Structures are given as C-alpha cells and as structure tokens.
Amino acid sequence: MTITARLLTGAAMLAALGATAAAADTLADLEAAAKKEGMLTVIALPHDWCNYGAVIEGFKKKYPEIQVNELNPNAGSGDEIEAIKANKGNTGPQAPDVIDVGLSFGPAAKAEGLLQPYKVATWDEIPDSVKDPEGYWYGDYYGVLAMGVNKDIVAEAPTSFADLTDAKYANAVAMPGDPRTGNSSMMTVYAAGLATDGKLAGADALNAGIAWFKALKDSSNLVPVNGSAQNLAQGTTPIYFDWDYNLLAMRDKLDGNPPVEVVIPSDSVIAGVYVQAISAFAPHPNAAKLWMEYLYSDEGQIGWLSGYCHPIRFNAMAAAGKLPADLMAKLPPAEAYSKAVFPSLDEQGAAKKATADNWAAQMGVN
C-alpha cells in the first residue's frame, strides 16, 4: 500500500493521505523505513544559512544510521528544481530527496509534477497562507531583506535604497547572485522597485526594480560580483543585500573583523518565505519524510531560530511559551520589521516571469 503520512495531534498514528512512497503506520515505522534506506540527499543548504549546519548535525545525531548527502550548498532555487528534473530516473547520490526553495518555486514545481505530498505532525501550526492544502509544499522560515555593510570601508552606512544611489557608494553595492536563479536576489530587485513606489506589486514592482538596478549599474555603484561574507570582508562587495538571517550570522562569524552593520532599508521592507518539499522522484522517500518531521518539530524550528530565521511555527510556539528568551534577545527589535510586506504567491509568480523576461536584456547579461 502507498500512503502519505501525517502524524495526528496527540497520537502516534499516521494518516493515510494517498502519496507514492512506502507505507509507515507510526513514527517508529517511519524511522525504521528511513533507517533502512540509510541516506538522505539534500541540496542548496549552506551551513551558515539559517543555521543549517547545526540543524543537519542535529538530525544526524538523532538518526546516526542515516547518512546525509549534501549536494551543491550554493545552489539557488532554480538550480534545485533543475536538479530534480535532471535526475528523474536516477536513484544515485545526485538525485535530491528534498528541496528548500523560494515561495514561488513551490507551486510551479507542483504544477510540473516534480513534488510529492506529505503533511508533518505539526501541520496545523503552519499558516494556511504559506502551504499547499494537499501538502505538496509548505513554508519553513522567513526573514526580511537587509544590507550588510563593512564598516571599515563604508564609514557611513546607508539606511535606504535611496541612499545607495549616492556617488559615495561607487563600486560598493552587490547582490548575492543572479535574480533569475536565486530567490533572495529576485526579491532584492522586487524590493528596489517598491522603494521607488510602494503601491507597485508583481511584475510592475519587479520591472521598476530592474530599472533601478540598471541605473545603479550605469552609475558604477553596482559591483558585478556576487556578494558574500568573503567578498564583504575583503572589500570586493562592501555593501550587499541578503536575508537578515544570513547577514546577522555572517556578522557574528566575522566577530568584528571587519565590523559589520546589518541595516533593514527604511524605504522597503520585504519579507520572504521559503518552502520545503519532497521530490516526486526521491530515492529515499521515507528519509525525506523523517527529515521533514525533524525540521517542523520544536527542535528543528528552534534550530532555525538560532540562525536568526523566523521559523514558520513562530507564532504558535510563542503562544505556547516555547521560544528561548536568549535567542529572542539576539534578534533585531520588532519595530524593524513593522513595515514588512509579504508579496503574495501571485505577485511573486508574476515577478519571477518578469525577471526571466527582462533582466538579461535590461542589464546586458547572459
């Protein structure tokens, strides 16, 4: 019999929901089936992104019988989707079992038949607005776009997108990657568009953002190099955009060498939700489901919070008094997030199409 399992609240039984993987009647059965598979293949999980290094170690410590095979930690959301497509008939180590992608990539992958449904035990605590009702994809964490600033090189940190157009930031500003393949970069362009006109949305916001970045490139303020912790520390990209949790973790890791300031732009606060999903062709479907159960458990959610990510069960866990006070004290003040805009799924889908259609032509890149 084939099922998709969901642990019932307060019970160990898993509900039969009609998926394509092997049966598991209890959590213990799921654990046994996953251990028999002996491997989990993940992709695009840098250890310094959202504390994934510690999260992976936590899973390995809990299930030492399962080898975690890590593919291309620096891949973008588009790369993850392509990895599923390229390995449909491959049961070897190059076929990802699970993906962690930007919100707009979840529905698109479902529509292409690339995902299989699964609902975790804590399903009811995931907001309906960020999950597929059938369980093909669901939100895992979110953050807001921010600027990381090397204070050794940039003495006066910018506070907004508008500030970045000043000539004093020549050859200083970067994005983490190509917006056609990376969700954080695409949403950076989107945020720039909103900074020019807060009433814009979808493709209009994205296209306005492309125009803004083209002007930044023409003024020589935009650096044609991907922003990273190494490039920021070396001064190649002394200002670069990324999710707040990545930049805060980078700040801590650099530990003052150089000093880094993390700034949430005052004129455009864009929140981004990432989602988890299981490949329809996962070679290790039970290990994939067990990984999901771990990520959405209290332990997994607090693991993400330790990396400055807001876990998707944040509100439910806060109401239940499950969030450690010491972790909460390390996050930016709540008022920094008060103007956050969460682009809808339709708006992100339209932005994704506009990026594919217009970025290369406007920016003069391949």
Rank of each mutant, 00 (worst) to 15 (best):
V189K: 01
G321Y: 10
K330F: 07
G53L: 15
F314V: 00
S129L: 05
V260K: 06
Y142H: 08
M328V: 13
G300V: 10
F59C: 05
G307F: 13
Y308F: 15
Y52H: 10
A32W: 06
G113L: 06
G58D: 10
P107T: 10
A21E: 14
L222E: 11
L331F: 15
A5E: 12
N74I: 07
E57N: 15
F213R: 06
G177D: 12
S184W: 12
G307I: 12
P258G: 06
T9S: 11
V262D: 03
P259Q: 13
V189G: 03
D79Q: 10
A360L: 07
D132W: 14
A287N: 08
L345W: 08
P64N: 02
P133R: 02
L14G: 10
A215Q: 10
E134C: 13
G272T: 11
L194W: 00
P285N: 02
C309E: 02
A208C: 08
D326V: 11
V275R: 01
T20R: 12
A271G: 08
V223T: 12
A174Y: 12
W123S: 00
A192Y: 02
K119V: 15
N226P: 03
S344C: 09
A83V: 08
T236S: 09
L194E: 02
I66A: 03
L115T: 10
S306W: 12
R180T: 04
Q67I: 12
A75E: 04
T20P: 09
N74S: 12
V55E: 03
A16E: 14
M175C: 10
G300F: 13
E37N: 03
G364V: 03
A233Y: 01
K352V: 09
E156R: 03
A75F: 08
M175D: 01
N231C: 13
A146N: 01
L254K: 05
D166E: 15
E293A: 08
S77Y: 01
K62H: 09
A271K: 00
T237G: 11
R313H: 13
L71E: 06
T41S: 14
Y52E: 07
G89T: 08
L14A: 09
Q230P: 04
S338N: 07
A83S: 13
L164R: 07
S297V: 07
C50R: 02
Y141K: 09
V98K: 00
K168S: 12
V223H: 07
L232G: 07
V269T: 07
A34C: 01
M187A: 02
W304R: 08
G349V: 03
W359L: 04
L8Q: 14
D242V: 04
L114S: 11
M186P: 00
D128R: 04
A172F: 13
K36V: 10
A172L: 11
E134M: 08
N231K: 14
D218C: 05
A356R: 00
L200N: 00
V262N: 02
